[in-house]
């Protein structure tokens, strides 16, 4: 599961819908993997305004990845640079969001403490009926 997806994922329980702690989910004992992917600069600039930047910064801190700037970069910065591809910034974001994936581990809701297992990159979001 890409880190990009993790930036949009919330707890599936209805009781957590109204809680601010249900997003972002916190990774626990995760194993990361780099999966090469084609760069897609126009997708990046499409998705950038929708990212929850503070959540991405906490996620990187929790995973022990190199620090991100505290402020979200502007879309214009992505298309800047001599070749219109934004140079290093676009490359780093592509690496972080689309190539870094969670392979094994668990995601924990900050509100209810429910643990979602991740196996071979597939997260299990099936809830037992008493939790729906």
């Amino acid at each position: 599961m890409k880190l990009l997806t993790l930036n949009f994922l919330t707890c599936a329980r209805r009781a957590c819908k109204s809680s601010a702690d249900a997003f972002p989910l916190h990774p626990r004992d995760v194993e990361l993997e780099i999966v090469e992917a084609e760069p897609n600069p126009s997708f990046l600039s499409n998705i950038l305004p929708r990212l929850e930047w503070p959540a991405l910064v906490t996620l990187c801190a929790e995973l022990g990845l190199p620090g991100l700037p505290g402020e979200a970069p502007e879309v214009a910065e992505l298309t800047a640079g001599e070749d219109g591809k934004g140079g290093k910034l676009a490359e780093d974001l592509h690496r972080l969001l689309l190539e870094t994936t969670v392979k094994e581990g668990a995601l924990v809701c900050g509100s209810c403490g429910h643990e979602y297992r991740v196996k071979e990159g597939i997260a299990n979001f099936l809830l037992p009926s008493h939790l729906v």
């Binding site: 919330t10 599936a12 299990n124 099936l126």
Partner: peptide
């Protein structure tokens, strides 16, 4: 794509 084992009848767990 990213895959999830989930039941759509239980809701869609995205913000």
């Amino acid at each position: 794509g990213d895959l999830f084992l989930a039941d759509a009848g239980q809701g869609v767990p995205f913000r």
